[in-house]
Amino acid sequence: MTQDIILANAQIILADEVIRGGLVLCEGQIAEIFQGSSVPKEAMDCEGDFVSPGLIELHTDNLERHITPRPKVDWPHRAAIMAHDRELAATGITTVFDAIRVGSIISDGNKRYGKYARQMADEILQMRDAGALKISHHIHLRAEICSETLLDEMDEFGDKDRVGIVSLMDHTPGQRQFRDIQKFEDYVCGKHNLDRAGFAEYIAFLYGLQERLGAAHEAGAVAAAKRYGATLASHDDTTAEHVATSAAHGVTIAEFPTTVEAAEACHDAGIATIMGAPNLVRGGSHSGNVAAKDLAQIDRLDILSSDYVPAALLMGAAHLAQLWGNWAKGIATVTANAARYVHLEDRGVIAPGKRADLLRFSMLHDVPAVRQVWAAGRQVA
């Protein structure tokens, strides 16, 4: 038996309002919500700070940064996973879908990038099952359509892996995120240390892959998501036609649509729109695509992702809360809305019987400062 934890004198962010009050946590769940600013003798005084549900991250590249801190450096994986886990906990994230690429290029030369998904998933799941991780980890497979080995790699996974999300990623240059070939060149050469002298040859190689394998890879990834029982996501939809194709596949989440046209089409199709919190915090897309703020202002932004900056998730939610004048709605983009679309019914809101995944934070001017974090009632930061 564990001792009850009582939080008091907090601004508690509920599903549709903020109340002054406290919470009783028992056996990893929220047992009670009470109102008022009084602080019982055995309670923790939250001093008027916000208390929200723990944040839920559906798409993050943060693990990749720990695995490969420099080009061609492969850091010990278990150490990288733990560092990633602790970093997320410190930013208020209590549930993460770790994004792992499936689909590799195994041809010789500087175009090569190898398989790693099965091994990485095994390492994450083993560490999770051993209790070595502070927060709740799930698997998100990023299905790279423009690759050579996608279907073989997806066949290495099954329903026992509990894959939560499969996203359809097509990074063929000249469309979607990289309509601007120059931006694609800058991104690829910078990230993968590719020689610009051979870039035209690389582009031709990718076009050939897409023409030869693209349709089969897309159909195979959709079928695999159904086989796993995973939520299906699109990535970088740009046109209404892209969205129509996504809807036909059964996509329910659109990651980072690049235009207002695509976001409007997602709304009409009942597909939730995820935008990057760094885009929102910075005031625009680093790839020159639609600004997250523009979609928020027309109410076409449903979920935020930290993408490549874990601390951006809470910052982005705070930005939205202030933009919309509604803390409950802003925080829902990183809690309740995310939980609903990946079918995690036990978390994402503060209510009796839900997991005690909680975040205490204050505001320093316009920047949220994390004070404490609990995952299933256990303090993790």
Rank of each mutant, 00 (worst) to 15 (best):
E32L: 15
E32I: 13
F34Y: 15
Q35Y: 11
Q35H: 13
G36S: 13
S38M: 14
P40S: 14
P40H: 14
A43E: 08
D45I: 15
C46Y: 13
G48W: 02
D49S: 14
L55S: 08
L55A: 10
I56R: 08
L58A: 12
H59C: 09
T60V: 15
N62G: 11
E64M: 07
R65W: 00
I67K: 11
T68M: 05
R70N: 10
P71Y: 05
V73H: 01
P76L: 06
I81A: 07
M82D: 05
H84S: 14
D85S: 15
R86K: 14
E87H: 14
E87M: 13
L88C: 13
A89S: 03
A89E: 07
A90E: 09
A90S: 06
I93V: 15
T94F: 00
T94D: 07
T94G: 06
T95E: 12
F97H: 13
F97G: 05
F97K: 04
D98F: 05
I100F: 07
R101A: 05
V102C: 02
V102Q: 05
I105S: 00
I106A: 04
S107D: 13
D108Y: 06
D108T: 09
G109Y: 06
G109N: 02
R112S: 09
Y113H: 09
G114S: 06
G114Q: 06
K115P: 02
K115G: 07
A117Y: 02
R118N: 06
Q119F: 08
M120S: 01
D122S: 07
E123F: 01
L125Q: 15
L125N: 11
Q126W: 12
G131H: 14
A132V: 12
K134C: 12
H137P: 10
H138P: 07
I139H: 11
L141K: 04
A143T: 02
E144P: 04
E144N: 05
I145C: 00
S147D: 00
E148G: 09
E148A: 02
D155C: 08
D155K: 15
D155L: 14
E156C: 11
F157W: 01
F157G: 01
D159E: 14
K160H: 07
K160W: 09
D161I: 15
R162L: 15
V163C: 09
V163H: 10
G164N: 08
I165A: 14
L168C: 00
L168H: 04
Q175Y: 07
R176T: 08
R176M: 04
Q177H: 00
